[in-house]
Simulated assay, not measured.
Amino acid sequence: MTSFVHGIALLGFEDFALAQGLDPRATLAEIGLPGDAQDGVISGVQFNALLELCARRSANPLFGLQFGLQQGAKALGDMLYAIQNAGSVGGALQALMQYFHVHSNGAQLQLERHGGYARLLYEVTDGEAHSVRQTVELAMGISAHLMQDLLQHAWKPRGLLLRHSSAAEPGLYRRLLGITPRFDSPVNAWVFDETLLNVPLSAADERLCQLARFHLDELARITLQELPGYVQKLLRIWLPHGQVCIEQVAEHLKLSPRSLQRYLRAENTSFQALLDDTRQALAARYLRDSSLSLTQLAGLLGYADLSTFSRAFSRWNGISPQKWKRHQLSASTAPLSPACPAAGPSV
Rank of each mutant, 00 (worst) to 15 (best):
N60V: 00
Q71H: 02
Q20H: 10
D78T: 13
A9I: 03
L11Y: 09
G7V: 06
D36T: 03
E30G: 13
A73D: 03
Q46S: 14
A29M: 11
L33G: 04
F16E: 08
A82N: 07
Q66G: 03
L22D: 09
L33I: 09
I83V: 15
S58D: 03
L11R: 10
L62F: 05
A55P: 04
A82E: 08
A55S: 14
P61W: 07
C54K: 01
L18A: 09
L22V: 03
P24G: 05
R25F: 12
K74C: 12
A73Y: 01
A55C: 00
Q66F: 13
Q38S: 12
G44Y: 05
I42Y: 06
D36G: 09
L22P: 07
V5D: 06
L22F: 08
R56V: 13
E30W: 15
L80C: 08
G35Y: 02
G7F: 11
G87F: 09
E14D: 15
F67W: 14
Q71F: 04
Q20C: 15
L18I: 15
A9K: 00
F16N: 06
G40N: 07
L10P: 03
G72F: 09
S43T: 01
G40T: 08
R56H: 12
Q66H: 13
K74V: 00
I31R: 10
R25T: 14
D23M: 08
I83C: 09
D36I: 00
I8F: 01
G64P: 02
Q70R: 15
L10C: 04
Q66S: 05
G44I: 10
H6E: 09
L53D: 00
A9F: 00
V45D: 01
V45I: 13
T27F: 07
A86N: 11
G77S: 05
C54I: 00
Q66P: 04
A19Q: 12
A26N: 09
A17F: 08
L53E: 03
L69D: 13
V41F: 13
R56L: 12
L53N: 01
N48R: 06
I31L: 11
I42W: 03
